[in-house]
Design a protein around this nucleic acid. Structure first.
Lengths: 213, 213
DNA sequence: AGAACGTTGTGAATGAGTTCACAGACTAAG
DNA sequence: CTTAGTCTGTGAACTCATTCACAACGTTCT
């Protein structure tokens, strides 16, 4: 099976609507329901569901519960997929806060910061450790995902250490492109680039509307 | 002229390398220099520069200063493009901090929050106003861009008010897709979706590497 | 001056992602 | 039971983005 990245992003979005509808007691949805919510075409929705092998019924559409289950099989985090946060500055702490409040299913096992002031403190239920403990924590706590929230000039060093310690995926907030070997995956979330895109588009020099990516 | 969104994102990234090189005294770059930094092909770089009408010279490549100037013409914010932040929670304040420290060229004219505790306070040089002042500030302060950092259930309401007040572009952190009329542009920056993508990729069920979007 | 090299600019080929369009399937109503 | 209506599943068409491949050019070396 090979599911494109784009499709994963949309599945994640579909899931939110499905959960809401399920909680409202709705049992069936049509492709155009999801399409309307996401501002895409019904054909796109059907194609996505085809990609993950989920099949609906003509005249009744898709089963909300069944589809949620199927998407969950793909997206739900496994218990052995821990997260580590590198950089407990303002952005890092905002992430901890957000994840603790909105996404308890993604437990951040530890935070790392080189500020001695922070080390030992517990931030939103997550203990902050010293820089040197990085490798031990990854090995001992089944950490597979790293969130990089350090300044640009140390991001590559951090990434190298994470990769050497066996990390599988990186969510990168630093404004640099991380060089990682094949088999390790990075997703950049560059706020400055996004802001420049919006500013450019708002200026009216182009016409588009885009998600994440 | 019509420059695709993707190209804008890459130009923004190129600019960072060019600035670094300029500060190191470098005067020329080849397409493969930029390509290596960004992990793309030289052909892509040349195509991008062709798109913005910048031309280099065989055997000497591109002029660092000239290219920076050209990209600046496209991306530099204009003085009449103010930014307003809606939602001064942890994420909103992290954004203020980040922008004030890293991007003084994007002045956030005001923050808005409905928490009376926050109203009147100055956060990183930016005053926090009450909910009801939103429309006045946008009109009086030449604000064209809104950063939406409120909870999901109020995001669409906020977006509607911003649009009615004449905003041109939105940077949206809320986990919903905002519905806006043609002529207003939104860029979603959905942390949960990005995290689910990384987790999925890290699980090894696909092979990819993606920026922003 | 001439030859060798490495780079740009770009038409054409390729590839990825999206949308079209319709056959087939199911439901509900007559 | 039959008909009308609506939706899914999907091959094919299309659109957009990326990469290939090479002529033309500037530089450097002899």
């Amino acid at each position: 099976m090979d599911i494109p990245n784009r499709v994963i992003g949309r599945l994640s979005a579909y899931r939110r609507h499905l959960r809401r509808w399920l909680s409202e007691g709705r049992e069936q949805v049509y492709s155009h329901d999801l399409a309307t919510q996401e501002g895409i075409t019904p054909a796109q929705v059907r194609r996505d569901l085809m990609t993950i092998g989920y099949t609906g019924s003509p005249a009744r559409g898709y089963d909300v519960h069944g589809l949620l289950t199927r998407i969950g099989e793909l997206l739900d985090p496994r218990p052995d997929e821990g997260i580590i946060l590198i950089g407990a500055g303002r952005l890092g702490r905002a992430m901890l806060d957000y994840l603790a409040a909105q996404h308890p299913e993604y437990p951040v096992r530890a935070a790392i910061d080189n500020d001695p002031e922070l080390v030992g403190r517990v931030i939103h239920g997550c203990r902050c450790h010293a820089d040197g403990d990085l490798e031990d924590i990854i090995r001992d706590e089944q950490v597979t995902i790293g969130i990089v929230a350090v300044p640009a000039d140390s991001a590559q060093d951090v990434a190298d250490r994470l990769v050497r310690a066996g990390i599988r995926g990186l969510l990168n907030f630093a404004p640099v492109r991380l060089r990682v070997p094949a088999g390790v995956y990075t997703q950049d979330l560059d706020i400055a680039v996004s802001l420049e895109k919006v500013a450019f588009l708002a200026r009216g020099q182009a016409k588009a509307q885009e998600t994440h990516e």
